[in-house]
Each structure stands twice: as structure tokens, then as C-alpha cells.
Design a protein around this nucleic acid. Structure first.
Length: 276
DNA sequence: ACCTCCCTGGCC
DNA sequence: GGCCAGGGAGGT
């Protein structure tokens, strides 16, 4: 499940393949991935003959700037993958969108669960979209602990739920939220507004270190391989996870048994021994 | 601020 | 055959 480190890894690996490439052909085979396009036909019409100028990311959203003022937005959802391949090479099941490039290669959007989407937006549409309500990027614009505290002040919701709220911080998902909380020794159930200044500092530092670690290892590919790099390689952070998916195993820090609980209908893993 | 739904592959 | 994974939109 692509979170910030996975999406950033994908963005970086696409940069050489896409920058200044012209889009020659657009084939949409399944309507659902373009559901966010107000007029479905706009997707292909707005992409065709445009060049990709730059590749940006905000939270889990990929933003490809075109040589007009249009922005090609991609969200990978739960199971979305972007592949760049030679036309005619074997296609993955659930290849929903195929975009031909003037390099002779093609970009394929593959997404079994179809939670992901692609859409091409004008600046106005972009501002009005959910991207306009995104909080600061958790990696490139991580707020100081003071600002983080201000955002969490008065909130009784569990800190785990607030870390997943993209309007507070953009880019953290279920895995990195649990990992950052373990690093900061905070229990996921703690009310967001209950964190002391020292705890806020620890949390901020933990978010930074956790995202950097994820990035360094190319992100987390779970056993389902829902997330893979565009060249098909897997991220290698899975074996370094400290709590996520480790229910019943020993905490590397204190030896206690990792527990799992459902918080806001999401699995949370934490160590009752060293997270308070 | 919270709940439900969307979707398929994989596993029991 | 049924359940689980879960990001984000939309509704209340």
C-alpha cells in the first residue's frame, strides 16, 4: 500500500523516464480509474500531445506538470502501480490505462482494487479538489513540534487516527503511523491533545526518521506485492518494520509482545511495554 | 467528527 | 464461501 516513502520512490524512479516526454496516445480501458475526471473524455484529450515538464508529489498524490498549466494527478489508492514498459511486452492483469510516450515506451496504470485514480486538472480544478485540503507534506514540509501541537490541541481522537488524517499531515498511512508511534514511544490510543511538548518533539522526530528510513530502503512491499517499483523490484523496508504486522512477536526494544487492536476500523500494532 | 462504502486477491 | 486488507469521498 503506497504511502509517502513508496510514492516518493516511484516519483524518483519515473523522473528520467517521463521528464520532457510527449504523450502520443492515451487508452482508457476501465472507467473507474478516471472517475474523478468531470468529463471522462477530457482525460485523454487533455493529455494527448502534451509534454511532462516536472514530477512533483504532495502526500500520497503524484503531480505531473504538463507543458500547459494542466496537472496530471495520480493517486495509487491501495493497490495501484505504475509500470513503464515496451509496447507489446506482457501486460499485468488489471492494466486499466495505457499511455504511449514519444520515447517509444508506454506507461501503464495497473490497479486490481481500483481505489486509485488518474485525473488531469486545470489549476482551478486542482485548487477545488481534495488536494486543496491536504495538510503539509510529512516529509518535505514537516511542521515543527509547536505547529504539530497546535494542530492536535483539543483533539480527543486517538493520535493514530490523527496521523492518518491527511488534512493534518499529508503522506502517512497505516504502516508508517504505527512505526512512527513506536519510535516515539507513544501508544496509538493516546488522545491527540494529550501529548506533552516533549512527546510532540519525539513524535515529530520519529515521523522524520521513519519516513527517511522507509525511503532509504525503497519503501515497504508487503507479501501481497501490491506495491512494487515501476521496474518491478520490491521495496525492502518490510523486514525492518518494528511493529506493523508483528502481532505476537517480541518488541526489538523491550521484548514485550506486540499487540494488535482495531482503531477507527484500521489495524494498529504497538508494544504495550514501551509505548505509553 | 464520525460511519459507510467502494473493490479484488488471497487466505482460512 | 466468507472475511480481511484500507485511502479517501460522501453523507449525516
Amino acid at each position: 500500500m503506497p504511502e509517502l516513502p513508496e510514492v516518493e520512490t516511484i516519483r524518483r524512479s519515473l523522473e528520467t523516464e517521463l521528464t520532457w516526454r510527449r504523450i502520443d496516445a492515451v487508452e482508457v480501458r476501465h472507467p473507474r480509474p478516471v472517475r474523478r475526471q468531470m468529463r471522462a473524455a477530457d482525460f485523454a484529450d487533455r493529455l494527448r500531445n502534451r509534454r511532462v515538464v516536472s514530477l512533483r508529489r504532495h502526500g500520497k498524490f503524484l503531480l505531473f506538470d504538463l507543458d500547459t498549466d494542466l496537472v496530471w494527478v495520480t493517486h495509487l489508492g491501495m493497490s495501484g502501480r505504475i509500470q513503464v514498459a515496451d509496447p507489446g511486452s506482457p501486460e499485468a492483469k488489471h492494466t486499466h490505462i495505457v499511455i504511449g510516450l514519444d520515447s517509444g515506451r508506454e506507461l501503464r496504470f495497473v490497479d486490481p482494487r481500483t481505489f486509485g485514480f488518474m485525473v488531469v486538472l486545470t489549476p482551478d480544478e486542482l485548487a477545488e479538489s481534495s488536494l486543496g485540503r491536504l495538510g503539509p507534506d510529512a516529509y518535505t514540509a514537516l511542521p515543527r513540534s509547536r505547529q504539530l501541537g497546535a494542530a492536535l490541541a483539543g483533539r480527543s481522537a486517538p493520535i493514530k487516527a490523527l496521523l492518518l488524517d491527511q488534512s493534518i499531515l499529508a503522506g502517512i498511512g497505516n504502516i508508517y503511523a504505527d512505526e512512527a508511534l513506536h519510535r516515539s514511544r507513544l501508544a496509538p490510543q493516546r488522545p491527540g491533545g494529550s501529548l506533552t511538548n516533549d512527546e510532540l518533539k519525539a513524535l515529530r522526530a520519529a515521523i522524520k526518521v521513519t519516513l527517511e528510513a522507509g525511503l532509504r530502503w525503497g519503501g515497504t512491499s508487503l507479501d501481497d506485492l501490491a506495491y512494487l517499483l515501476p521496474d518491478g523490484r520490491a521495496g525492502r523496508y518490510l523486514s525492518r518494520l518494528r511493529v506493523y504486522g508483528r502481532e505476537g512477536e517480541a518488541c526489538h526494544r523491550c521484548g514485550s509482545e506486540i499487540r494488535r487492536a482495531v482503531i477507527r476500523s484500521r489495524s494498529s500494532f504497538w508494544c504495550p511495554g514501551c509505548q505509553r
